[in-house]
Design a protein around this nucleic acid. Structure first.
Lengths: 219, 219
DNA sequence: GTCTATACCCGGATAGAC
DNA sequence: GTCTATCCGGGTATAGAC
């Protein structure tokens, strides 16, 4: 973690800890929908069930809340990719990764939107994290994919663009959910829809790599 | 066009026409980067080279500018999909579509971001357009894909999810550009990078449909 | 540690001179 | 058609009582 410190809970009381957590949750929901400028401290406070001034006691400023929310999601956000293991079966590893990403789109859509929002606006606050932590992670994982290619276990493809494709296809279901609902009447909350979505992504990726889909799809 | 009227230029003078166009351009750039609440009329005016009050002479309110900008991009935005023709070769049609979408990400990133921003925030203003115009278009084009499947010209796939995949993979390069730059040091402005990106998307889609890539890639 | 009151500023929008 | 001046609401942040 470079730009944003993920946790600095030194000596916080139970109630402080709990209130901070409630604020972060509320902030996540608000920021992810309305962007930074579009959300007010008042709204966050209301959503967290406390007064505006009380909230300002826990966080000194609006941007402090925003950065805390951002830092809070980063770890869980980057986690699935860390699991890609070069020693395992490529089809299994990638199926698992896609499944994890789709699960996050389904269960943590606000996190996805907040991240999208931040990047869409030029990533002013998490640029350092992207350039350092995430860059290192990507360099490591593209090597994993490249070695699968070198070993002849998957067809040749550009590893970075493959990862971008997986990111975009899976996150799309969270970030563009209103459009998806408008067009299909369904979302990832619908189990069948979610299965079809995941199957489609899985199929595109695996067949692009010359792999067959495994029978049990959630590795 | 249902929710937003695309053009209502009744009897505008040359200078009015020109100033309105300049405002829309400036607004597009600002809104796409900072979102609705994050952009100020002042900024738009400055970027358009006129005073705030003068701008307010042309558009009565901030939201009027926003809606005009949104309406302005919608036609060009939905245009590529309209071209999908059931009578032509699927590989050629889809290659062409992907090429068009990638071209738009490269040449009209602000348009892409504005659209993404709007949808991300719940599509409050273009929901009607999505539910009507775009819905009709999608229904029509999924039928095209489905008939290719029925004719045995491409492998079975869910047509809607296929379209979502193409949208997400191509638009990703515009919407998440800051992240892509942070990770690769390159963007679609780099010709080689753009070729590799497009090839990867093309490869994933075509191999997923059991098709071979055509030699000339821009159909 | 939590609340009320308020200072302060910024941005949207209007009035009216030129 | 363009400008200056200004009003006004809303939002951040602080001071200080409890």
């Amino acid at each position: 973690m470079t730009g944003l410190k993920s946790k600095q809970k030194k000596g916080l009381s139970r109630i402080q800890e709990k209130n901070r957590a409630r604020i972060i949750d509320a902030a996540l929901a608000e920021f992810s929908r309305h962007g930074y400028s579009g959300t007010t401290i008042d709204k966050i406070a209301a959503s967290a069930g406390m007064s505006k001034s009380n909230l300002l006691y826990y966080f000194s400023s609006k941007s402090a809340i925003y950065e805390a929310a951002l830092a809070h999601i980063l770890d869980v956000w980057l986690d699935p990719l860390r699991g890609l293991n070069v020693d395992n079966d490529p089809a299994e590893e990638l199926s698992h990764y896609i499944h994890q990403k789709m699960k996050m789109s389904a269960e943590l859509p606000a996190e996805s939107r907040l991240f999208a929002n931040e990047v869409l606006q030029g990533a002013p606050r998490i640029r350092p994290v992207l350039e350092n932590d995430l860059k290192r992670l990507i360099d490591e994982k593209t090597k994993v994919i490249q070695s699968w290619i070198d070993q002849g276990r998957i067809k040749a493809i550009d590893p970075v663009h493959l990862i971008f494709s997986i990111w975009s296809m899976t996150q799309h279901y969270a970030d563009f959910e209103p459009q998806i609902v408008a067009l299909t009447g369904k979302s990832l909350k619908d189990a069948d829809f979610r299965d079809t979505a995941e199957s489609t992504v899985l199929h595109l990726v695996l067949s692009g790599l010359g792999l067959k889909r495994r029978t049990g799809q959630d590795a």
